[in-house]
Amino acid sequence: MPTRKSKNTEQKTPKNPIPDGQLDTAHGIPPNSGKKHTGGGQTANQESNQDKPHIINIVKIPKIDIIEGVEANKIAKTANKISRWSVSGNWLILGVTATLAIIAIKQAKSSQDAAKTAQKTYIADSTNNERVYARDSIKQIKTDSIDSVRESREQDLFKLQHEAFAETKRYDKEKFDNDTVALNLQIKALKQSNDQFVKQNEPYLKVTVDSVTIRFNQLYVFYTVSNLSNTPAMIVSVNTVADIGIYDPALRLAKGTKSNKNIYVIKETPQPNFFPIANYTDDQKKFVNTGLWSVFWDADFEYINQVTNEKRHYIISVKINKTRGDNPPFVDFKTNDNLPK
Rank of each mutant, 00 (worst) to 15 (best):
G89V: 05
T208H: 06
V238W: 01
A115C: 01
K286L: 07
I123L: 09
L190T: 09
S152L: 12
Q200P: 02
E130T: 15
G34Q: 05
N289K: 02
N273A: 13
P249I: 01
S152I: 12
S86H: 07
G291M: 04
Q161V: 07
S111L: 06
A108K: 08
R153A: 10
Y264H: 09
N45E: 15
I138A: 14
V209T: 11
D243G: 08
I266G: 08
K52N: 14
K74H: 11
E174Q: 09
Y171I: 15
K258H: 05
A76Y: 08
A250G: 09
K12N: 12
K319F: 03
P272A: 10
N262S: 15
F216Y: 13
K285R: 12
Q46M: 08
A166V: 13
S237Q: 14
D282C: 03
N16E: 11
D147Y: 03
N338A: 06
F330P: 00
A44N: 06
A76P: 04
R312Q: 06
L205I: 09
I277K: 03
L219C: 12
K258S: 14
F330S: 08
N217S: 15
W85A: 07
T143C: 00
D195T: 11
Q155K: 09
K334D: 12
K341D: 12
E151F: 09
Q112F: 07
T38H: 13
S193N: 13
A118S: 10
T323S: 03
P329H: 02
K52D: 12
F165P: 00
K199M: 05
G325N: 06
T121P: 00
K334S: 11
I316Y: 02
T180C: 05
I123R: 10
A108T: 13
D298Y: 01
I235K: 03
Q46T: 15
I18D: 00
N201P: 03
H162T: 14
V318G: 00
A26T: 03
D51P: 08
H27N: 13
F333L: 02
T43Y: 00
H27A: 11
Y122S: 09
S111W: 02
S111A: 14
R312C: 00
F197G: 10
N217R: 07
G34H: 03
S229Q: 05
T290L: 01
Q218W: 04
R150I: 10
H313D: 10
V238L: 10
I103F: 14
F222D: 13
S83W: 02
A26S: 03
Q192N: 13
K116G: 01
N279R: 09
A108I: 06
V207M: 14
K60A: 15
L219N: 08
G69L: 12
I67M: 10
R324Y: 07
P17T: 09
I123Y: 08
D144I: 07
E10T: 14
I214N: 11
H313T: 02
K77S: 11
H313A: 05
D210E: 07
N260I: 02
A79V: 06
T43H: 01
N80V: 04
T121L: 13
F287G: 01
R135V: 15
Q271E: 11
I29V: 15
V87K: 13
I235C: 05
V149P: 00
F275M: 11
S33K: 02
L205V: 07
F296K: 01
K341Y: 08
S152W: 12
R84V: 11
N129P: 01
D300I: 01
N16H: 06
I103H: 12
D298T: 03
N321D: 04
E130D: 11
A26V: 03
G325I: 08
S317L: 02
